[in-house]
Amino acid sequence: MKKIIFIITFFLVTGRLLSQAETSPEFTKEDYLQKSKNQNTIGWVLVSSGIVMTVVGAIGFSNGMDDNDQSDSETDTYGFVMLAGPLVSLGSIPFFISSGRNSKKSIALTLSNQPNFASQQYAFVVRPEPSLTFKIVF
Results as ranks from 00 to 15, higher is better:
114 Q>G: 02
122 Y>M: 05
111 L>K: 08
110 T>Q: 07
131 S>T: 13
130 P>Y: 11
135 K>V: 06
109 L>E: 02
104 K>W: 03
124 F>L: 06
135 K>P: 01
117 F>K: 04
125 V>K: 10
129 E>Y: 07
103 S>R: 15
131 S>H: 10
123 A>R: 08
113 N>S: 10
107 I>F: 08
130 P>I: 15
103 S>L: 12
136 I>D: 00
116 N>W: 04
105 K>V: 01
133 T>H: 13
129 E>G: 03
125 V>Q: 14
126 V>R: 03
103 S>A: 14
123 A>S: 15
126 V>Y: 03
113 N>L: 09
105 K>L: 07
132 L>P: 00
105 K>S: 08
126 V>N: 10
122 Y>E: 09
115 P>H: 00
135 K>F: 01
113 N>D: 08
113 N>I: 12
112 S>K: 12
127 R>E: 13
120 Q>M: 07
123 A>G: 11
133 T>K: 15
122 Y>R: 06
111 L>H: 03
120 Q>A: 08
114 Q>P: 01
136 I>R: 07
134 F>V: 13
135 K>M: 05
110 T>A: 10
132 L>H: 04
113 N>Y: 04
136 I>A: 14
124 F>E: 13
119 S>E: 13
135 K>Y: 01
107 I>G: 04
112 S>E: 13
124 F>Y: 13
128 P>R: 00
104 K>F: 05
116 N>R: 07
127 R>W: 00
108 A>F: 02
120 Q>L: 05
133 T>I: 14
115 P>S: 00
134 F>W: 08
107 I>P: 03
136 I>P: 03
127 R>H: 04
124 F>R: 01
108 A>L: 07
128 P>A: 01
118 A>E: 15
124 F>G: 06
129 E>V: 12
120 Q>G: 08
110 T>R: 08
123 A>V: 07
104 K>I: 10
111 L>W: 04
109 L>D: 04
118 A>I: 12
106 S>Y: 02
136 I>F: 08
122 Y>V: 03
114 Q>H: 02
105 K>D: 01
124 F>H: 04
134 F>L: 15
123 A>F: 05
109 L>T: 06
132 L>A: 14
135 K>D: 02
134 F>G: 10
116 N>I: 04
117 F>P: 02
110 T>H: 02
106 S>H: 01
119 S>L: 06
133 T>L: 10
128 P>Y: 00
118 A>R: 12
115 P>Y: 00
112 S>G: 10
122 Y>N: 11
126 V>G: 04
112 S>D: 12
136 I>L: 12
106 S>R: 05
123 A>E: 14
107 I>C: 07
134 F>K: 06
128 P>D: 01
121 Q>E: 13
113 N>E: 09
134 F>H: 08
103 S>M: 14
119 S>G: 08
111 L>Y: 12
136 I>K: 09
133 T>E: 07
121 Q>I: 06
116 N>H: 04
121 Q>P: 06
111 L>T: 06
104 K>A: 13
121 Q>H: 12
120 Q>K: 11
123 A>P: 03
127 R>M: 09
129 E>D: 05
104 K>M: 11
121 Q>T: 11
116 N>V: 11
106 S>Q: 02
122 Y>G: 11
129 E>K: 10
130 P>E: 13
123 A>W: 03
113 N>W: 02
127 R>I: 12
108 A>R: 15
105 K>R: 15
125 V>P: 03
103 S>C: 07
130 P>S: 15
116 N>Q: 10
108 A>D: 03
113 N>R: 03
125 V>M: 07
106 S>E: 01
